[in-house]
């Protein structure tokens, strides 16, 4: 572990933390525009988080230590996962950081704790949220792994860092296979971050909610941590999608100016993706829970198609 890598870690983590809430607000803004409303300010999420951090925490009498530690662990797991996806600058990987499977399982770690938190208070909503979250995660997992396997196959590496380097090095990275993969990755992004049509992040207190159900009993800084974790997760997955499909601007050698420029470029690309997500969400209705597997089958279809193209063509 060298100094360069440590610097990368710190910068990447801080950058992700800094950018993530912005995208959340942006999506809301876009959705509001498409609905003809003005919508919140792009910095509203920052304000919400700041407020939550200052508020008092309320625990249920039923809750155990899980509720107290899980939010920190969840965020930590997502942040470590964020290290696997360089936003702007790709250093040489150290000690297997960047392994795509480990990346996936860090999300699983976060999800595990989140689901336990949902169950901890004994609230029926929490239980329902956890149950649905885990079920959906289970069903999407084959798709995810196939997509990742396809990525590993296309880029001939298991490491996200290497993938980025290859992708950044090629002049025209956008190939038909990559487009198909991008569609699959997009669906994974939607599912993993609990957006419409999977889940409606705006609705509390509806029987359709999944992610919000799990964190319903949280309050104060615990809630803030969970919300932040969700935001970071969105950013990380977006970064994966963006840097694989549209890697231009990604730097592989360290220079302050280069990194800053790349970061800025990423910010814009991310904002565009958030906009797309916003539009996508507004054009969709929330799906019935048990119809969801068919959506995943679609993603599975795309990734399998990729594989077939790659393998047989």
């Amino acid at each position: 572990m060298n100094g360069e890598f440590v610097a990368y870690c710190v910068i990447n983590a801080l950058a992700v933390l800094a950018i993530a809430p912005l995208y959340m607000s942006l999506i809301k803004k876009v959705k509001a525009w498409t609905q003809g409303r003005q919508g919140p300010s792009p910095f509203q999420t920052y304000a919400n988080l700041a407020k939550l951090f200052r508020k008092e925490v309320i625990y249920s009498p039923n809750s155990s230590r899980v509720t107290r530690v899980a939010p920190s662990i969840t965020l930590a797991a997502i942040l470590v996962a964020a290290l696997f996806v360089p936003l702007a600058y790709v250093p040489a990987p150290v000690g297997g950081i960047g392994n795509i499977i480990l990346f996936l399982y860090l999300f699983a770690l976060a999800r595990f704790f989140m689901a336990l938190t949902g169950l901890d208070a004994g609230s029926p909503f929490g239980g329902m949220g956890s149950s649905r979250e885990m079920s959906l995660a289970a069903v999407i997992e084959p798709v995810t792994i196939i997509v990742f396997a396809a990525l590993a196959f296309v880029f001939a590496s298991l490491n996200i860092f290497d993938m980025f380097v290859i992708s950044a090095a090629s002049a025209f990275p956008v190939t038909p296979t990559l487009i198909l993969l991008a569609i699959s990755l997009f669906i994974i992004l939607i599912v993993e971050t609990a957006r419409i049509p999977i889940d409606n992040p705006e609705t509390h207190l509806e029987l359709t909610m999944i992610h919000e159900g799990m964190i319903l009993e949280l309050s104060g800084k615990n809630l803030a941590l969970m919300e932040l974790a969700a935001a970071v997760k969105f950013t990380v997955l977006s970064a994966l999608l963006i840097n694989l499909v549209l890697p231009f601007g990604l730097v592989t050698t360290f220079s302050v100016a280069g990194v800053l420029a790349a970061l800025l470029l990423f910010l814009i690309k991310g904002a565009v993706l958030s906009g797309i997500v916003g539009i996508f969400e507004s054009s969709m209705a929330k799906m019935r829970f048990f119809r969801l597997p068919s959506l995943f089958v679609m993603a599975f279809f795309f990734s399998t198609l990729t594989i077939i193209i790659e393998v047989f063509a």
Binding site: S64, V66, A108, A115, S130, M134, E141, I145
Partner: peptide, 24 residues
């Protein structure tokens, strides 16, 4: 794909186990 499914289901299974036995 099936292996990944297994792995994710096992996470669900043990969330259920730990949650039902020890929480709430």
């Amino acid at each position: 794909a099936l292996f990944a499914l297994t792995s994710a289901l096992s996470a669900a299974c043990f969330v259920k186990a730990f949650g039902s036995v020890f929480l709430a």
